[in-house]
Design a protein around this nucleic acid. Structure first.
Lengths: 185, 185
DNA sequence: CGTGTCATGTAATCAGTTACATGATTCA
DNA sequence: TGAATCATGTAACTGATTACATGACACG
């Protein structure tokens, strides 16, 4: 299995929802899929050019009054086909690297307070994320009631909530467990 | 925050447990930290050379009878300091990209059976992982009873179990939820 | 005789991030 | 005046993976 440019498909996917500029695509990732996907400009713009060379998208320059012109990209039939093909393929899931766990693995070489601080920070992050999810769910349900994609969007949020809830539990359990440990403060 | 070579620190960390060859390091990641970390030979060997040039490790050639010679690396005092410094630093946690969720986000463009298949596969993977964790926990507790690092190793496994358990729940919940959806099979 | 394990390494390739450059407009 | 937003893009860098090369030994 060779290198696969995931950004390419993410960009095609976002364009499958309607024509957009590179800037729009970036904004879109930030509001709707930020909790499981990110794209940088350095990835978006060169990829859009490449996609156009490959005939998967077309672009037209949209003159703006005052502001800088926008280059708006639209999916071609071929682009649509390629995206649909990718979408149908099974996902290859590989557990990502986790730096917190790597440090924890060497916990014996750390002080109890340092470990506690790391887990406490992690716990706070999970709490914040959980709150964000809750807000997003309410907003989505109000704003997109009846939208055919809504159930799937909620599904991705539910994934995040399950995961975050579990990591919150783990944080609490671990902090409690550290109390009983002879620590090397 | 510039680019940080995580492999470097992972390698230093493994060497902090005792002198090892590149091959040993690879084996070690495969048995003990595989569920949250991976290293490839293409990363390990060049990094070891660089670490030696930087004075963080030293190496000696160990002649083998018959088999190819091993180059065994040992942490220097400086290497120890650098590793400890990294270990103490707070973790910067960024939620990784998730291809399953990306595809699910565009679920409206997929058939119900295709989505179900993807989630079902995912569910099976979680089930397998959960079983692996259970096996590892029992093995660790037997093999390393009383080892000062044991609580931390168990903590990383507990993380995996919480997470996997949660994703299993999510899979089941999502599969059930898909039943009520008007699908485009 | 072929497969697997031990063992070290290089080459090719890329995906992806960060920082930089540019410039108009709006708003406090 | 200066920050923020809109908007597009390039350059530099590097982390990381995959595939390849090499070779001995053990085991069935």
């Amino acid at each position: 299995m060779a290198k696969v440019n995931k950004s390419r498909y993410a960009i095609l996917g976002i364009l499958s929802l309607g024509p957009k500029s590179g800037y729009d695509i970036k904004k879109m990732t930030e509001v709707s899929i930020a909790h499981f996907w990110s794209e940088s400009f350095g990835q978006i713009y060169p990829n859009l050019r490449q996609l156009e060379r490959d005939g998967l998208v077309t672009s037209r320059l949209e003159p703006q009054t005052g502001a800088r012109d926008r280059r708006v990209y639209t999916l071609t039939d071929e682009g649509e086909r390629v995206f649909q093909g990718w979408l149908r393929e099974p996902v290859d899931y590989a557990p990502p690297r986790n730096e917190l766990l790597l440090k924890l693995f060497f916990g014996d070489q750390l002080s109890g307070t340092n470990i506690q601080a790391k887990i406490a920070t992690f716990k706070r992050q999970q709490q914040t994320r959980l709150d964000t999810y809750d807000g997003l769910v309410t907003w989505l349900q109000a704003e997109f009631a009846g939208h055919p994609s809504l159930p799937y969007w909620l599904m991705t949020l539910s994934y995040g909530r399950h995961l975050t809830r579990a990591l919150l539990d783990w944080s609490e359990e671990s902090l409690a467990g550290l109390e009983h440990l002879p620590s090397s403060d």
